[in-house]
Design a protein around this nucleic acid. Structure first.
Length: 915
RNA sequence: GGGCGCGUAGCUCAGUGGGAGAGCGCUCGCUUCACACGCGGGAAGUCGGUGGUUCGAGUCCACCCGCGCCCACCA
């Protein structure tokens, strides 16, 4: 295998470190013993493989990759010269959905591209324990068995979850292999692994010691579904229509106030009534007392600026224990907190005998009924507002006061804001940058404790005797204060607390491991925007705080894939499309291509057509290669074919043209991948393979590389060898170029194209050879193509038989080098001689083609066509003339544009003249 | 309420201030010796609307209409 080292070094970009050494290392890996039949036999078998069959090929290629060890890099070198990506860890119980498939493909393109470009690459793989989701899933299974976590007890339950993980936790990893993802499968991480857990505890302790982590009684988003507090980010607001009740409260010593609420049941916990301090209407009320209906509690009337004078009556009930705003107001005015709703989502004893034990909704009805009986409901009206729901359990959030652990984020946010502002972390596309910055600027404390059993238990120990609180990475034996017995905190940490450490905890942090040195910081974090705050922002904050470095230099936010009808893809809506099913149907290459081609800087709809297009591309490339191999072998003989060294040896204009176009697509593709412009990368490759390579180059070149059977008139053997070398060079480069996008079919084809038996995944990525750029050849061939297309259209419109060659004369400039191919591709016979009088003429760039025989042609149609062509040219001329006669245009437009229009005018005039 | 984004061919979407494009679908023709998951030809568009900037606007600006998404503590 030829190894031009220069091919690894793209001009204008830094060569990343010991390239030669790297290559050898890669090659040692790719030369693993892979026995296959001799090439001649394989080529013969290729004769019958008229289609690319993904189901047959893909498992073989996966097997080759995995057993080669290529995906596992030794932890050598420095992170700055290596390339690494930490996969967003999927939930351990999850299965591959479209988002995973797209993100997996994107990351794999980046990884494969960098690996082929000579970088030591590591794609860090692992799964997330996903506290609430996993616990809920196992609890559901237990319920089906007629038992519950409470019956099993904490230890038994956690053991059951680990069993569950053993059984179901590997599905998604296998699915990633199916997709072709080149993760380092030999070092899979899990956020609850022993080492990882040590890192989590370490971080908690450090944050506690810095004073960021604290315990507080605070109003939290209580999720009755998971029986746990959840963070603000896990709350989703839904628009709902409720009834807004206006309720009359009597004032002590006469008078009344009227408050409005959509949650009458919470009035049982009211501890004040508030008005705005500037509200003239109610100034006299401040300082008096209202009497809470049904309860009889005396409520001070207070003044607070939070109250909107122009909303409702301007009189507001205050329930500090069950409303976040009221909680704040209560704190300002030192109000009592009366909790009338419990953690089970039912009314508590404090709600009074009449209501205790009722669900919130039942209590609402009961309270309204009771108030109505007393004639206190002044008004009822439908009211649309936002209602908080748990993103996790789907249940309505119940704000209530609870003792929880929090982390203050304000200090952590500062350097994380600076990192993005200063470009240390680049956000692509850029518009997400401001979203990040806005959120970070207003960051609030993070409730990190969860009342679950599945997760990292807080390293907090309470003394039974003196209630001293110990926070330590190793459990202390006894209370340091009084020697009393210690009890560990029951709560576990929010899953995102451990996820925030992902890029470095997976590499062995806090130990200074070789892995950490080699692969941290990582290069890019690719994800959908829904976890920008939940995860990405927190990784940046924690990364900077704990390692002193940003965890990645790029954040790439990819599209969200919607159902084809534009709705959200979801199981519950029935709008989900299973990527694995699509892979079964069309092949992994097709799905990868389709997803990349669809992806964009905004949300996109799933496109079965684009997947189809990918399948077509895989098949096309397979057949193009198959054609070239079979032809070369037939034309040169097996011996010469086996000894042939593919290299660019252009002898004709089409050779120079395709090599020039190849250089172009090579630099385009590299640039697009580096710019995260995956759709154009994929579609650009499609265009190159279809249009330039297959439709034109292969078709033009066919007669130069004959099946040798008829024997007469073949090009001499050295000419055939030059063409074969060029053709195979172009195919090798094209196949390699496509590899990051469609790895399976290209790896299979490489096993035919590469004599050395190496892996394409380890081969150098093609690099544009600028010396092969040939603008002259491009101009000449573009002109020929335009002419061929014009003649074909003309032929079709006059009913020429498909195969019949038409006698004609070329009356146009600039076809010296391309006349033979024009003749053949357009099925003309350009004898030159013949009757002087043409029967018809076809407009082509730079002139016409005169048709010399009307045999079998519909000349009326030909005339109509000629007239149409003339009309089109005239219209075009009129447009250009209009421009050129506009003094403003000539005076103000750039000279090159003006000259371009003049040139066009000359060309069009010549064509019109010729017609 | 604040922010971001989108309206281009029947559908899904590209489009860099200077000749409106692709894939699919539709249609006509080809059993052309790589591929019928193929090849060749064709039809199909007041680029959401109205103004403005400019020699020139699908592209830049303003407003309007329609549709998404994110953030936000008005009962």
């Amino acid at each position: 295998m030829a190894l031009p080292l220069a091919a690894h070094v793209r001009p204008g970009r830094p060569a990343h470190a010991p390239v030669g050494e790297r290559l050898n290392e890669l090659l040692a890996v790719s030369r693993w013993p892979y026995t296959q039949p001799p090439m001649a036999k394989r080529i013969a078998e290729l004769q019958d493989r008229t289609r690319f069959d993904p189901a047959e090929v893909e498992p073989r290629m996966t097997e080759r990759w995995l057993s080669s060890g290529l995906f596992h890099p030794e932890p050598d070198g420095e992170a700055s010269e290596n390339y690494s990506i930490a996969i967003p860890p999927p939930n351990v119980t999850g299965s591959l959905h479209m988002g995973h498939a797209l993100n997996g493909t994107i990351q794999d393109v980046l990884i494969r591209y960098r690996r082929m470009s000579g970088r030591r690459t590591k794609w860090i793989l692992g799964t997330d324990h996903a506290g609430i989701a996993t616990q809920a899933q196992v609890e559901k299974a237990l319920a089906a068995e007629g038992t519950s976590r409470h019956e099993l007890g904490r230890e038994g339950f956690v053991e059951r979850v680990w069993d569950w993980r053993e059984h179901y936790g590997h599905a998604i990893v296998e699915q990633l292999k199916r997709l072709g993802a080149s993760c380092d499968y030999s070092e899979e991480r899990f956020t609850l692994d022993e080492g990882y857990a040590r890192a989590v505890v370490e971080v908690f302790v450090r944050m506690y010691e810095k004073g960021y982590v604290y315990r507080d009684r605070y109003i939290v988003n209580w999720d009755p579904g998971s029986r746990s507090a959840i963070s603000d980010l896990e709350v989703e607001e839904r628009r709902e229509t409720d009834t807004l009740y206006s309720i009359r409260y009597d004032l002590e010593g006469g008078g009344e106030v009227t408050i409005a609420t959509v949650r009458p049941e919470t009035m049982l916990g009211d501890t004040a009534v508030a008005v705005h301090p500037d509200d003239e209407r109610y100034r006299a009320l401040v300082g008096r007392s209202a009497i809470l209906p049904l309860v009889g509690r005396h409520l001070p009337v207070i003044a607070d600026e939070y109250v909107k004078m122009d909303f409702g009556t301007g009189q507001l009930k205050i329930t500090p224990a069950h409303d976040p705003n009221d909680f704040e107001i209560g704190a300002r005015h030192d109000l009592d907190q009366v909790s009338v709703i419990g953690e089970d989502g039912r009314m508590s004893a404090e709600a009074g005998e009449r209501f205790a034990g009722l669900s919130v909704m039942a209590a609402r009805e009961a309270v309204v009924a009771a108030l109505r009986e007393e004639g206190r409901i002044v008004a009822e009206e439908p009211y649309e507002h936002e209602v908080p729901y748990s993103h996790r359990s789907g249940q309505r959030i119940e704000p209530l006061i609870s003792l929880q652990w929090f982390m203050d984020m304000s200090e952590l946010a500062k350097p994380a804001i600076a990192a993005v502002n200063d470009g240390l972390v680049r956000v692509v596309p850029d518009n997400h940058r401001r979203v990040y910055l806005d959120w970070m600027a207003g960051i609030r404390p993070w409730c990190i404790s969860r009342q679950l059993w599945w997760g990292h238990r807080l390293p907090v120990y309470y003394c039974d005797t003196c209630s001293h609180v110990h926070v330590a990475s190793a459990p202390p034996e006894r209370c340091a204060q009084c020697g009393g017995h210690l009890r560990q905190e029951e709560d576990v940490l929010d899953t995102w607390f451990s996820s925030a450490l992902w890029p470095f905890a997976t590499l062995g942090w806090p130990e200074q491991t070789p892995q950490l040195r080699a692969f941290y910081p990582t290069d890019v974090l690719s994800t959908a925007r829904d976890i920008l705050f939940l995860w990405v922002a927190r990784m940046i904050m924690m990364g900077i705080e704990l390692t002193g470095q940003v965890p990645f230099s790029d954040v790439y936010i990819h599209s969200v894939i919607q159902a084809p009808d534009g709705r959200r893809m979801s199981k519950s809506l029935g709008t989900g499309i299973d990527p694995l099913q699509e892979i079964e149907r069309h092949g992994a290459d097709a799905v990868r291509f389709g997803l990349l081609a669809t992806s964009s800087t905004q949300d996109v709809r799933y496109s079965a057509e684009k997947v189809q297009q990918g399948q077509a591309l895989a098949n096309k490339l397979f057949n193009a290669t198959r054609f070239a191999l079979l032809r070369v072998h037939a034309s040169l003989g097996a011996q010469a074919a086996a000894e042939l060294e593919p290299e660019p040896l252009p002898s004709t204009v089409e050779d120079r043209w395709i090599l020039s176009r190849l250089a172009q697509i090579e630099s385009d593709t590299a640039a697009r991948i580096e710019d995260y412009d995956f759709s154009h990368a994929a579609l650009g490759l499609y265009d190159f393979v279809y249009r330039e390579l297959c439709d034109w180059y292969l078709e033009i070149v066919k007669p130069r590389l004959p099946d040798l059977e008829p024997g007469e008139g073949h090009a001499p053997a050295p000419e055939r060898e030059r063409l074969a070398a060029t053709l195979l060079h172009v195919l090798r480069q094209t196949v390699a170029l496509c590899h990051p996008v469609i790895p399976f079919v290209t790896e299979e084809l490489w096993s035919y194209l590469d004599g050395g038996g190496g892996l394409l995944a380890a081969a150098p990525y093609p690099c544009a050879d600028e010396s092969l750029t040939d603008l002259q050849a491009e101009v000449e061939l573009e002109r020929a193509i335009e002419a061929v297309v014009a003649v074909r259209g003309w032929r079709d419109s006059v009913g020429a038989r498909a195969g019949a060659a038409i006698p004609a004369r070329l009356c146009a400039e600039g076809y010296e080098t391309v006349a033979p191919l024009l003749e053949r591709m357009a099925r003309l016979r350009l004898d030159g001689d013949g009757p002087a009088e043409a029967v018809a003429s076809i407009a082509v760039p730079g002139g016409t083609i005169e048709v010399l025989s009307a045999e079998g042609l519909d000349l009326h149609a030909a005339e109509r066509r000629r007239a149409a062509a003339r009309e089109k040219i005239e219209a075009e001329i009129a447009r250009v003339r209009g421009k050129l006669e506009n003094p403003g245009f000539v005076a103000k437009a750039p000279a090159s544009v003006v000259e371009g229009e003049r040139e066009r005018m000359r060309r069009l005039s010549a064509e019109l003249e010729a017609l």
